[in-house]
Design a protein around this nucleic acid. Sequence first.
DNA 1: TATTGTTATACTCTATAACTATA
DNA 2: TATAGTTATAGAGTATAACAATA
Lengths: 159, 159
Amino acid sequence: MAASPQPFEPPPGAAFLLSALGSLAAARFAERVAALDLAPPQVGLLRAIAATPGQSQQAVAQLLGTPPSRLVALVDGLADRGLVERHRNPTDRRLHALHLTDAGRATLGRLENLGQEHDNDICGALDTEERARLRAMLIRIAEDQNLTPGVHPGYRRDC
Amino acid sequence: MAASPQPFEPPPGAAFLLSALGSLAAARFAERVAALDLAPPQVGLLRAIAATPGQSQQAVAQLLGTPPSRLVALVDGLADRGLVERHRNPTDRRLHALHLTDAGRATLGRLENLGQEHDNDICGALDTEERARLRAMLIRIAEDQNLTPGVHPGYRRDC
DNA sequence: TATTGTTATACTCTATAACTATA
DNA sequence: TATAGTTATAGAGTATAACAATA
């Protein structure tokens, strides 16, 4: 006999689940960093500047995969609050080298704790060993897909 | 001695990887369904109507977790192309029962194949057994987070 | 003339709230 | 008066392209 009609057949595959849980994780992360008056793209920029200090806006834009014009408002917002600084290069005054301030580094430290809490919130259903296995699989997928480590592909318009 | 400076420390946790890969998966899926002239929210609506045919727009809106006003344009787009129909309830003419047309069911069938290709694209780095383990872990996280199975949380404004 | 950063503009997506029609 | 659906409006976020300063 035929099966009775079930909601949402066929059951979603791993890619759908990744998209759904990724969306959830991103929304929850946005809530968390909102407590520090930051938006996720600003957090990514803060981390990018910390990873490669002194780079020009063009260079950081290329690293993140975003148009340079988008960086302007992002840097403005962080600079207005004293988290990053633009250092004008004396030999080529077109270039603005980006650096974190002490306050920026302090904020990054707070973000680190906040990120751990976020991880525990999202992965609470898994024990430590399972979490490590999940992480290992996700890293393999990310490498296979040529994602730049540490960079969120949400910055990219291509993909 | 101190470690040399490394990009993006500390290494991203599972939640960041979920967000990043979810974003990638969503973008790739959007590209795929664009070939059928569909946007991802339309696909989710198509699947929701198939899962619970004959429901009102309010009921579907509640299932998806989205404001009813958002459904209007979504249903309009699918109805204009003959994929869904609004059946007015004769006993209460305020209600529009949503149904798929034959063309809508055919499109859903094409989306099913397309979803499998998408899954293979995203999870190409994993073998069948690993993919099943990944899927099982993601389902456990989704249940732990009270996600409605089959519904993408991107529809929700709360979370 | 080429390049860095900036600004201006327009477009997409979405939520909120007002509105219409049915009850 | 309450409810289903619709429309109008506004806001956030982003990309594209024009622009100014510097080389």
